[in-house]
Amino acid sequence: MHRHPPRRAVLGAALAAATLDGCRRTPNIRPPQSVNTAAAAAGATVIAATGAVAVPSAPLRVVALDTAELDSAMTLGITPVGACRAPADTDLPNYWPASRLAEVADAGTIGTPDLARISALRPELILGNQLRDGAHYGALSAIAPTVLSRTTGYPWKENVQLHARALGRATAAESVAAAYRAQLASTSHALGGPGATGSRKVSLVRFVPGGRIRLYGKQNFLGTILADLQLGRPQAQNVDQFDVEVTPDQLTGADGDVLLYASHGDPNAAGATAVLTSPAWQALGAVRGHRAFPVDDRLWFEGIGYTGASLVLAQLQRLLGY
């Protein structure tokens, strides 16, 4: 039996405090050069994947080039003026309130930012990662100070720290990280503690466009959350890498005590519709035991950051409490 657990924000007071200050945006739109030069002179220097970057002291006009950067800014109280969405999605991750997302302009797709749109938004700071946008760094940094992490998803906590330093919100980020650790402890206790969680193998499967099936390993956003909870993983996924791609006739590695799966974009285009009705999928122990649950792709696989992690933890507690 499939269940769709409700979303609920659980970062609590720490997240609310971090968000409150940043929800007040300056209404003034100034020329990019005057904004960037003056702010950077009074700001700080952060060490990004590209080297030292001078950033404004308190940037409010921020563009996020990927979902991790979007989560960091939103969690720390800054609603970006623009953001890039995943190519297979029609909009930004919808675990954020629609009222906040309505304020975020379309800045292109992840890996293919629209430079003209970004320039028109007159950002004070651009956040991204080298994996997606290393090739665009020169053009982006000509628009505004651009801070790129080396990669995305792993190691996400270190990337949030970089984003927080660039945004001038390191103290708020510490509070949010502490709230996450407290929620981890609470979730682990609810699931029976490390001894109980370690004996349960959780499978993560994602269907992506082109009919590819990804079995997620340990070096990604969700893999680190499961590791933080000391949850076990199926042998095929208990690997120090991002993922393992398999074909529809190689699904044995997808089995586990609990199987969590999602489709990126259209389920038909991703091949999920066909696989979920196939004999190979139906033969998996988790499926036969009614322990295979669909999850929201835009939260679980794109919600890379502390707000996304908090919501994932809340849903994990429900799903593993079957």
Rank of each mutant, 00 (worst) to 15 (best):
residue 1 M to E: 13
residue 9 A to K: 12
residue 10 V to K: 11
residue 12 G to Q: 12
residue 13 A to Y: 12
residue 16 A to W: 12
residue 22 G to M: 00
residue 23 C to F: 10
residue 27 P to Q: 08
residue 28 N to P: 04
residue 29 I to G: 09
residue 32 P to I: 10
residue 35 V to I: 09
residue 37 T to M: 06
residue 37 T to R: 08
residue 39 A to Q: 09
residue 40 A to C: 08
residue 41 A to N: 13
residue 43 G to R: 05
residue 47 I to H: 15
residue 48 A to D: 11
residue 48 A to C: 13
residue 49 A to M: 06
residue 50 T to K: 15
residue 50 T to V: 12
residue 50 T to E: 15
residue 51 G to A: 14
residue 52 A to S: 13
residue 57 S to D: 13
residue 62 V to P: 06
residue 63 V to H: 08
residue 64 A to F: 14
residue 65 L to V: 08
residue 71 D to A: 11
residue 72 S to E: 08
residue 76 L to S: 08
residue 76 L to I: 09
residue 83 A to P: 13
residue 86 A to V: 02
residue 87 P to T: 02
residue 91 D to P: 03
residue 93 P to E: 01
residue 93 P to W: 01
residue 95 Y to D: 05
residue 99 S to M: 09
residue 99 S to D: 05
residue 100 R to G: 04
residue 106 D to I: 11
residue 108 G to V: 14
residue 109 T to A: 04
residue 109 T to G: 07
residue 113 P to M: 14
residue 116 A to Y: 11
residue 119 S to G: 14
residue 125 L to G: 03
residue 129 N to C: 06
residue 129 N to W: 02
residue 132 R to L: 07
residue 138 G to E: 12
residue 150 R to P: 00
residue 154 Y to L: 02
residue 157 K to G: 09
residue 161 Q to C: 12
residue 165 R to F: 04
residue 165 R to I: 02
residue 171 T to G: 07
residue 178 A to F: 11
residue 178 A to K: 12
residue 180 Y to G: 01
residue 181 R to T: 07
residue 182 A to T: 13
residue 185 A to I: 02
residue 185 A to P: 09
residue 188 S to C: 11
residue 192 G to H: 05
residue 198 G to K: 09
residue 198 G to C: 10
residue 199 S to L: 13
residue 201 K to T: 15
residue 202 V to S: 03
residue 206 R to I: 01
residue 206 R to K: 11
residue 207 F to C: 00
residue 208 V to R: 00
residue 210 G to I: 01
residue 215 L to E: 00
residue 215 L to W: 00
residue 216 Y to H: 08
residue 224 T to I: 01
residue 224 T to S: 04
residue 225 I to L: 03
residue 226 L to S: 10
residue 228 D to A: 06
residue 228 D to G: 13
residue 234 P to Y: 08
residue 237 Q to I: 02
residue 237 Q to G: 01
residue 245 E to C: 04
residue 250 Q to L: 01
residue 255 D to P: 12
residue 256 G to N: 02
residue 258 V to M: 07
residue 261 Y to K: 12
residue 264 H to G: 00
residue 275 V to A: 00
residue 281 W to F: 10
residue 282 Q to K: 10
residue 282 Q to H: 08
residue 285 G to A: 11
residue 286 A to D: 03
residue 286 A to I: 05
residue 291 R to P: 07
residue 292 A to E: 02
residue 294 P to E: 01
residue 296 D to T: 01
residue 297 D to Q: 00
residue 297 D to C: 02
residue 298 R to K: 10
residue 304 I to T: 07
residue 307 T to Y: 12
residue 307 T to N: 15
residue 308 G to P: 12
residue 308 G to S: 14
residue 313 L to V: 01
residue 313 L to D: 02
residue 313 L to C: 03
residue 318 R to F: 06
residue 319 L to R: 06
residue 319 L to V: 05
